[in-house]
């Protein structure tokens, strides 16, 4: 039971922070299928930075953990500028732009990872080893029956994500920026008429989604594999999108959806171990989140309401 909660949370939280990024972008009216690429590029950027820093300055890589998180956010943000440029400035189809960015992110990061490994370390590898992130347990709280597991074996990034999520919630629903952002996704003309530059708000929203995706990406890199490799492109970015669709583009319900994914995945592995299935069955267990996504989409897609102006190319001149 404990492992279920521990593993479930360590998967659900990175997913959740990526979903929040998606909510920011989509509620501002910009369809964002690029999360998959953004999280990959963000994680790449963070991993690359700390690997280089630790190599050239001889710093133990474990010490650079928080820097890796920060730089991953920066990396995700940088790459998200592309989505902003294509879909806001160049008025490209936002779906196409998102998919293009995913493909490009994968190509670029794989190329650069092997190239840099070769040039700097003289190694033939498509991975950056970023070290393990030390887990910890909160003494008293972890003694609570059942729910105490929440406070056991926590990755530090989980704490960061929780705080980021709360802050993101506050900005989204309480501040001036949040009010304007949500208005953009419903009726950009009203925002324009109120003297606020729609494209700027949208650009910021897309950049935030890039940063949060990067944070999610590097967290997966730490929790699943302790390295950055092309295996980061597991489609979790798309799961994050599915989660925010069930969450009806609101932050709290989306959290519920992410928890569901997390526990389903952890539960699958748990079951696999319990039933002593041979390792080939791991392939089937891997499909669980995806199958669940499809099933949930079948039940929820019809009743859910996307932001009214989602995916619309905003043109000032048109009324």
């Amino acid at each position: 039971m404990d492992t279920l909660i521990i593993d479930g949370l360590s998967f659900a939280l990175p997913l959740f922070i990526m979903s929040i990024g998606g909510i920011y972008s989509e509620r501002s009216g910009i369809t964002n299928l690029a999360i998959e690429g953004l999280q990959g590029f963000g994680a790449f950027f963070g991993a690359l930075s700390v690997v280089l820093l630790s190599h050239f300055f001889n710093i133990p890589i474990q010490k650079l953990f928080y820097l890796a998180l920060l730089l991953s956010m920066v990396g995700g943000m940088i790459f998200s500028l592309l989505h902003g440029l294509l879909s806001i400035k160049f008025k490209a189809n936002q779906v196409i732009s998102g998919v293009v960015i995913n493909i490009l992110a994968m190509a670029v990061t794989v190329f650069l990872t092997t190239q840099i490994n070769n040039m700097v370390f003289g190694a033939m590898s498509d991975k950056f080893q970023i070290g393990t992130s030390q887990r910890f347990t909160i003494p008293l709280l972890s003694k609570i029956p059942i729910l105490g597991a929440i406070f056991k074996n926590i990755y530090p990034f989980e704490i960061v994500i929780v705080f980021m999520a709360i802050f993101a919630y506050y900005v989204f629903y309480k501040t001036r920026f949040g009010l304007r952002l949500r208005a953009c996704g419903d009726n950009p003309h009203s925002v324009d008429a109120a003297g606020v530059e729609v494209s700027k708000v949208q650009f910021k929203a897309v950049m935030i989604s890039g940063a949060l995706s990067g944070l999610g990406g590097i967290s997966f890199a730490y929790s699943i594999s302790t390295n950055f490799s092309p295996a980061i492109y597991m489609g979790y970015g798309y799961l994050a999108i599915a989660a925010l669709i069930f969450g009806n583009w609101e932050i709290l319900p989306t959290f519920g959806a992410c928890l569901l994914f997390g526990f389903a995945r952890a539960g699958g592995y748990y079951m696999g171990q319990l039933l002593k299935l041979p390792s080939t069955f791991s392939d089937l267990i891997m499909t669980l989140p995806y199958v669940l996504t499809l099933l949930l989409l079948i039940f929820f897609s019809k009743t859910n309401r996307a932001p009214r102006a989602l995916g619309e190319i905003y043109d000032k001149g048109k009324r």
Partner: peptide, 23 residues
């Protein structure tokens, strides 16, 4: 029938097929 974005469902099928056939 269910108003599911074809991109999201296709991606899900991509993964499902990849793993199931691998099995």
């Amino acid at each position: 029938k269910f108003n599911i974005n074809e991109v999201v469902s296709s991606i899900m099928f991509n993964y499902i097929i990849q793993y199931v056939l691998s099995f």
